[in-house]
Nucleic acid binder design. Structure first.
Lengths: 115, 115
DNA sequence: CGCCTTCTTCGACGGCTCTCGTACGATGGG
DNA sequence: CCCATCGTACGAGAGCCGTCGAAGAAGGCG
């Protein structure tokens, strides 16, 4: 066993394969948008089980897969849990300012609509 | 006949009714994104017939309706043609920087993928 | 008036998406 | 070694979405 567990690896798109349409589509679902907001607000990577979502576990798996396959998050296994991190730097290089403006817009809308 | 033809009016969401998820979803379709890019690049309002799209007229109507109902564009009749304009100012006030970063991202991706 | 252009409406089809429940696999603690 | 926990896989259902063609309405022009 190496220092880091690499026994279960997950397929991620390369930075160059990330498509704007896919990112926008991934962010256009309320559940996924709330996940991204939580990830952005946290300094640490977050396990899937951290999130309190109004859907079942299998649906949660589906949403995380959409986020991973669109290039929005990077997922790594750590024991039985799966850690999630925003791909901030890569997205920033591909689409400068996009993620920040979406995050700001989501926060503004949440404030506007009263949480 | 008044100075401006108002005989046929179209339903638009108020600025306060525009939802971020709806805007992101509207922009996540390639056809609609290209429409928005053309609108942003033009100083004038553009008729639906201006756009050269890889879909039929009825599909075009559908896409413009999605853009209008999500609050991205404003449509007004002028005779038989329908003029389209980006709701830049309202979107900018609701979601500062969002539209610009999406437009830049789309341009960057087009350049990256070789038009 | 008659016709052309422009856009709409309607129904239809195929496909994707979101959702769930159940059953399963993988990991680590007692 | 057993089992609890975390996430996955699979099948299924309901609904939405993008697409089309055909038929129709609204307005302008000769």
């Amino acid at each position: 066993m190496t220092e880091r567990d690499t026994s279960r690896i997950l397929a991620h798109p390369e930075a160059g394969e990330i498509r704007l349409e896919g990112v926008l589509h991934a962010l256009s679902d309320p559940v996924r948008l709330s996940i991204v907001l939580d990830l952005a607000a946290s300094a640490e990577d977050l396990a899937c089980s951290y999130f309190v979502l109004p859907v079942t576990k299998s649906t949660t798996t589906h949403h995380f897969r959409v986020l991973r396959e669109s290039g929005v998050v990077r997922q790594t296994y750590r024991g039985t849990t799966k850690l999630n991190a925003l791909r901030r730097d890569e997205l920033e290089e591909l689409f400068p300012g996009l993620l920040d403006s979406v995050l700001k817009a989501a926060a503004a809308e949440e404030a506007r609509l009263g949480s």
